[in-house]
């Protein structure tokens, strides 16, 4: 089951012939994902390592029945690539591109309000349903099939969490990197809601960071709706205010976006907080224990 992607997902890579698109398109295929097509305007009719390349997403959908798009188009064209995927009838677009202008994303998110397509990202590592399908740039081998849903604003910090979970025998249903930008297509709450309804997900690990109030909103939602054990880690306790910590969205501004406030909100909602990045799996195990469940039933 898992959420959003599985072994049946048919993936088109927008920007397949660029260096990142090629590299990760092929790595995803090696993992077992069905990479059915690529799109690069002007390169239609060619092939890349056996993958047909089209000029438009619409052709990739029509000819190869792609339903998921992984986007590596550089920032100047990324917004247009997302909109093209939406109009072509793609169900799920995953935009890996870092550095998409905010103005473009404001317009994209408004346009997608009238679309049936879900966007994940931009500026994200993508998502993976271990053992079935990888649509992203994460190292596949650290993941184990299982029943922990992972949702995160970060990339390598998620890998760290996943490795800890796998080492502790806690496999994952699906891991979703929602992205580190201020405006993103899919929120924590969107993913939490999918995990809540997924029978294969028994517990959730959330990774947040400074900037914005998405974690506080997630905390409120968790308190009201989530029926599964949740643990979380929030990065940036020691981040200085007013400085952008690598991610475009990771900034404490005007007293808002502080890690301490996010941690307090999550804790108030019954979320087990990992006090240190070295104890993320431990926090997940504690969350199961507190709920009277064994993490190994998962």
């Amino acid at each position: 089951m898992a959420i959003l992607i599985d072994r049946h997902s048919r993936i088109v890579v927008q920007g397949l012939t660029g260096s990142s698109g090629r590299r990760h398109g092929l790595l995803c295929r090696d993992y077992g994902s069905q990479i059915v097509a690529g799109v690069t305007p002007g390169k239609g009719g060619t092939h890349l390592d056996g993958i047909p390349v089209f000029d438009t997403v619409a052709e990739a959908v029509e000819t190869c029945h792609a339903d998921v798009s992984m986007i590596f188009v550089p920032p100047p064209g990324a917004a247009e690539a997302i909109l093209e995927a939406s109009e072509a009838g793609i169900r799920l677009a995953v935009c890996i591109t870092e550095g998409v202008p905010v103005r473009d994303m404001v317009l994209v998110n408004r346009a997608l309000a009238n679309s049936s397509m879900r966007l994940i990202g931009p500026n994200c590592p993508g998502l993976i349903t271990p053992g079935q399908c990888k649509v992203g740039i994460m190292p596949g081998d650290i993941h184990q099939p299982g029943s922990i849903g992972v949702v995160s604003r970060s990339g390598t910090l998620t890998y760290e969490a996943v490795k800890q979970l796998s080492d502790a025998g806690l496999g994952q249903s699906t891991c979703v990197g929602i992205g580190g930008d201020p405006i993103i297509g899919t929120s924590f709450i969107d993913v939490l809601s999918l995990f809540n309804d997924d029978p294969d997900t028994k517990g959730v690990f959330l990774i947040g960071e400074i900037g914005g109030t998405a974690e506080e909103q997630a905390a409120a939602w968790i308190r009201q709706h989530l029926r599964k054990p949740v643990a979380a880690y929030i990065a940036g306790m020691t981040a200085p205010p007013g400085k952008r910590m690598g991610h475009a969205g990771a900034i404490i501004s005007g007293g808002s976006g502080r890690a301490a406030d996010k941690i307090a909100a999550l804790r108030d909602s019954g979320v087990q907080i990992a006090e240190s990045p070295a104890s993320m799996a431990l926090a997940m195990q504690k969350a199961f224990k507190a709920a009277g469940l064994s993490s190994h039933d998962s």
């Binding site: 604003r153 390598t156 400074i210 990065a235 940036g236």
Partner: peptide, 29 residues
């Protein structure tokens, strides 16, 4: 560190262990 989130987490970890970071540095993916 590579990655912004992991870099922030590393500073947090270091501070928790009684160290004081001289910088945040994310070399990128």
């Amino acid at each position: 560190v590579n990655g912004a989130g992991l870099a922030m987490a590393t500073l947090d970890m270091l501070t928790e262990c009684g160290g004081q970071p001289a910088n945040f540095l994310d070399v990128g993916g």
